[in-house]
């Protein structure tokens, strides 16, 4: 018997006027897992989270939390989830403790339990010293931590984190990663969205790549990297007029299409890593009379995965 997934989307479609924000998204997150929803701007990450957290009604398809349909019984879904939206949703004019108290009471938890839990969370998220200060003066990292603490006040079984580190400085980002890793270790089911490949790689055990409202790939970080052949070859040649000859020599050695830079001197392509790859490449180019400046074989980053899957890098896409 397969167990009920904590988060499930089946063929979810969401349209905003002309824009097809979600074009049949399928997703299944088992209980206790940390999944990363990875995609560039406008991919449909926030829209997916909003459907799952009952903020938007899907135009077609189904979404369930712990087997409960988000459209049929939104109230029951809301009791089980915690949402940390893309922008820190805190009441700036209250203190950190008052913010926690406020949300806890809206969950209809007993007053004493809210108080205890708020103190624990403030401690855990390193906000104890700032607990009774008005949030207005908080740094971005502190707000974000408070924001997550607020989503955890009722001990949700599923936590949604929409771009939890966007806009944070590198130090706060590292702090946030520790916080999320700790949550994961505690067994909370987490669905986090991110534009940072490094972040998904670091935090998520399973990555779902989304682009233009569709899931285009899914797997562990290792599996995704393996999809482009294990390694990545980059070559620089001396003269652009040798472009076609170099291309002809490299193509048979590689496991995928060879990408050529606009100035015709840099080439990159997936390749099987192994002994003798670099000398083999140099020899092949030498045989056709191409002067080589540089050859490098490296393990791919998730950026390379994204390029291979979508034809564009995750970060360079602004429009669409």
């Amino acid at each position: 018997m397969p167990t009920t997934p904590a988060v499930e989307m089946r063929g979810v479609v969401k349209r905003f006027g002309e824009t097809l924000a979600l074009d049949g998204v399928n997703l299944s997150v088992p209980t206790g897992a940390v999944y990363g929803l990875l995609g560039p701007n406008g991919a449909g990450k926030t829209t997916s989270v909003r459907v799952l957290t009952t903020l938007l009604t899907p135009d077609a398809g189904e979404a369930r939390i712990d087997g409960i349909d988000v459209v049929a019984d939104p109230h029951a879904v809301r009791r089980r989830i915690g949402l940390t939206g893309q922008y820190a949703a805190v009441e700036e004019r209250l203190t950190a403790r008052e913010n926690l108290d406020y949300v806890g009471r809206l969950f209809h938890l007993p007053r004493s339990q809210v108080r205890q839990r708020a103190s624990d969370l403030l401690e855990r998220f390193d906000l104890a010293d700032a607990a009774d200060r008005v949030v207005k003066g908080f740094s971005g990292g502190m707000r974000r931590r408070l924001d997550i603490a607020m989503s955890l006040i009722a001990e949700p079984s599923v936590l949604f984190l929409d771009e939890p580190t966007t806009g944070l400085d590198p130090r706060s980002r590292l702090g946030m990663w520790d916080v999320i890793a700790e949550l994961a270790a505690d067994g909370t089911t987490v669905l986090l969205t991110t534009q940072y490949l490094e972040e998904a790689d670091r935090l998520a055990e399973q990555i779902v790549v989304i682009d233009h409202g569709r899931v285009i790939a899914e797997g562990t970080p290792e599996q995704l990297k393996a999809r482009i052949g294990g390694a990545l070859l980059s070559v620089r040649i001396a003269r652009p007029e040798n472009r076609d000859r170099a291309l002809g020599a490299l193509t048979p050695l590689c496991t995928g299409p060879v990408d050529v830079s606009p100035d015709d001197v840099a080439f990159s392509a997936p390749i099987i890593a192994g002994d003798g790859v670099v000398p083999g490449v140099i020899r092949a180019l030498d045989d056709v009379g191409v002067d080589v400046l540089d050859v490098e074989v490296r393990k791919p980053s998730l950026d390379d995965v994204f390029l291979a899957l979508t034809g564009h890098t995750a970060s360079s896409e602004e429009e669409s």
Binding site: T54, R78, G85, L106, F107, H108, M150
Partner: peptide, 13 residues
């Protein structure tokens, strides 16, 4: 604008 409405709408209130 601050996203508080999103938060409140995701609560069982």
């Amino acid at each position: 604008q601050k996203g508080l409405v999103d938060r409140l709408r995701s609560l069982p209130m």
